[in-house]
C-alpha cells in the first residue's frame, strides 16, 4: 500500500526532473498565471502537510490518521518538485501558507473526536477539489511548459487523495437522523384507557350521589 501510493508521486517527481533537465526548459515564458499557480501549489502543499500532521495526532478514526500520514508524505514530495520548478523558473515562493489556510489549521487543531474527523475530511475534500481545479487551469492557461507539466503529473495524486477522502467520509456513519418536523405523528398511543377511566369516574360519582340520597332521605318513600 505505502509503496503503491508513493509510486505516482515518485513518478511525477522523476518525470518532472527529467523535464527540468531538458535544455528547452531553460528559456521558458513564465507568466503571472504560472507564478500564481506555483505559489498556490506551494502554499497548498504546506497546508496539507500541516493538517496531515494534525490528523496523524488527532484523528479519531484510523482512516483519518492514515490519510493524514499519506498527505504528509505525498505533499512533501510534491512540494519538493514545486520548489525545484520555482527555483529553475526564478519564481520566489512564500515561506508560509495563506492567512486563511493558517486559520483553518488552527480551527482544526482546536477540534476533537468525531467532530474533528468530519471537519478535517470536509476541509481536505474542498482543498483537493481546489487543487485539481487550479492544476487544470494551469495546464490550460499556463505558459511555462515545466510548470504545466508539473500540474499535469500532480493531478492524479490529487485525484487519488480526493477519492480516498470521499470514501472515508462516506464510511463514517451518521450519528443522528432528523426525519420529522410536522408534529402530526406524536407518540405512540400511551396505553391509558382514558375513556374507561372517565366513564367509571362519572358513573361512580352518580351512583355515590344516588346512594347518599337514598341513605339520607328514606322517609318520603314511606309516606
Amino acid at each position: 500500500m505505502s509503496i503503491l501510493r508513493v509510486v505516482p508521486v515518485a513518478g511525477a517527481v522523476v518525470a518532472f526532473s527529467a523535464a527540468g533537465m531538458a535544455p528547452a526548459a531553460a528559456q521558458q515564458d513564465v507568466s503571472a498565471r504560472d507564478k500564481k499557480w506555483l505559489v498556490q501549489a506551494h502554499q497548498g502543499n504546506l497546508t496539507e502537510v500541516t493538517v496531515g500532521t494534525i490528523a496523524q495526532r488527532k484523528g479519531k478514526s484510523k482512516a483519518v490518521r492514515s490519510l493524514g500520514a499519506m498527505l504528509v508524505s505525498d505533499h512533501s514530495k510534491l512540494d519538493r518538485a514545486v520548489q525545484d520548478t520555482a527555483r529553475r523558473l526564478g519564481v520566489s515562493l512564500p515561506a508560509e501558507p495563506s492567512t486563511a489556510q493558517k486559520a483553518l489549521a488552527a480551527r482544526l487543531n482546536a477540534m476533537h473526536g468525531k467532530a474533528f474527523d468530519r471537519a478535517w475530511l470536509n476541509a481536505l475534500i474542498k482543498d483537493h477539489r481546489d487543487d485539481l481545479a487550479a492544476a487544470r487551469e494551469e495546464v490550460r492557461l499556463g505558459t511555462a511548459a515545466e510548470a504545466q507539466h508539473l500540474a499535469t503529473v500532480s493531478s492524479p495524486v490529487f485525484r487519488k487523495h480526493l477519492n480516498m477522502l470521499l470514501r472515508a467520509r462516506e464510511a463514517d456513519p451518521p450519528g443522528h437522523v432528523a426525519a420529522g418536523s410536522g408534529g402530526l405523528a406524536t407518540a405512540a398511543p400511551d396505553g391509558r384507557p382514558l375513556a374507561l377511566g372517565y366513564g367509571l369516574l362519572s358513573a361512580g360519582l352518580l351512583v355515590t350521589a344516588g346512594g347518599a340520597l337514598l341513605w339520607r332521605r328514606p322517609v318520603p318513600w314511606r309516606g
Partner: peptide, 30 residues
Amino acid sequence: MEGLTIAGVVSAVLGAALTVCGAALVMRPA
C-alpha cells in the same frame, strides 16, 4: 326503610369505589 337504607349504603360504597378506580385510571401518569 331498612332495605332502602342498605341499598343507599351499598350504592354509596360502590359508587365511591367506582370513582376511585376511574380517578386512578385518569390520573395515572403517562
